[in-house]
Structure formats: C-alpha cells, structure tokens
Simulated scan of single mutants.
Amino acid sequence: MGYSSGCHTTFHHRYHIVWAPKYRFKVLHGEVRLRVREIIKQVCVEMGVTIVNGALSRDHVHMFVEIPPHISVSDFVRRVKGRSSRKIQQEFEHIRKRYWGQRFWQRGYFSTTSGNITDDIIMRYLDRHTHKQGFSPSP
C-alpha cells in the first residue's frame, strides 16, 4: 500500500466510483466513449486526482481513484459529470437529440472506499470487467 503526500499531509484515500448515463442508455461507445475518457482524464489532471484503474462499459463508468484530502468525492464527481455532460452534448448531435438538452448522466453515483474490500479485489474486478476500454494509471 503506497501513501501519497502533499505539503502537510500523507494520505491513502482511494475510492471506487460508479455512475451511468441517464436512463442507462448504452451510449458509451465509439467516439463518445473516447471523448468521455479524455474529458475524465483532463479533469483528474486538473484536480490532482490519480486514476488507479477504470473501465467504461456501454452503459456505465467505473473508476478507482485516489483523491487528495482537500477535494471531496462529491466535488470530484460533480466536476467530471458536469464537464463531460456539457461537452458531450455540444460535440455529438445524436446525444444532444437523444437527451434533448437535459443532463447526460443519471443523478447520483455509487462510491465506496477500498477499506471495506481490498484494493486487490477492486483491481481484479476492473481488470476482468467486460466491454471495457480501461483508463491507464495516471503518471
């Protein structure tokens, strides 16, 4: 188990987070999948969040991330979902028509720390996850 450190902190805050498109439509494929993946990576870099692992299925997103203590999980998810929703609807007309100006993502998300189960179990699950186009770990 590796610890990260900031100016005045040492931490190991890892979260397994899952969220889905509204109505659980299977829209995360092709160019949309690639763009969502790219936007998520950009937000992670901006916020200092480390991607440990992740997977995009056609109808949901799984992420295993390490979030610094000064950022709440809800702030991270709000930023990722908000920015990706806005950009996806701007860039893909078929998505904009399907959701007709409403939110792209379902309300809410699932989150758990890796304390209830081990990091290894989460990593094995994500590695076995079907239909995935994974996130490579952050540098």
Rank of each mutant, 00 (worst) to 15 (best):
K87L: 06
E46F: 05
P69R: 04
H94N: 13
P69N: 04
W19K: 11
F76L: 14
R35P: 04
H12M: 03
S57D: 07
N53A: 14
R107M: 14
Q102R: 08
P139G: 02
H12I: 05
R58K: 12
Q106D: 05
F76I: 02
V77P: 13
Y23P: 09
G101C: 15
F64R: 03
G54F: 02
S85K: 00
H131T: 11
Q102H: 10
V77K: 04
F64P: 00
V27Q: 08
D59R: 15
F104M: 13
I71T: 12
R14P: 12
I121Q: 13
V77N: 15
F76Y: 03
I40Q: 03
I17E: 15
W105H: 03
T118F: 01
T10M: 07
W105R: 05
R58F: 14
V61T: 02
R86N: 15
H29S: 10
M123S: 04
F76H: 03
G2Q: 07
T130A: 13
H129I: 10
S74K: 11
Y3M: 14
T112G: 05
R128M: 06
R83N: 09
R78C: 09
H70E: 06
R98V: 02
R128C: 07
R58A: 00
K81P: 14
G134R: 00
E38M: 02
E46P: 08
I51H: 08
R98T: 04
P139C: 02
P21V: 06
N53V: 11
V65Q: 05
D120I: 00
R78D: 11
T50K: 06
G54E: 08
C7L: 15
R83W: 10
H16N: 11
N53F: 04
K26Y: 09
V65W: 06
G30F: 12
D59Q: 07
Y15K: 09
F92N: 01
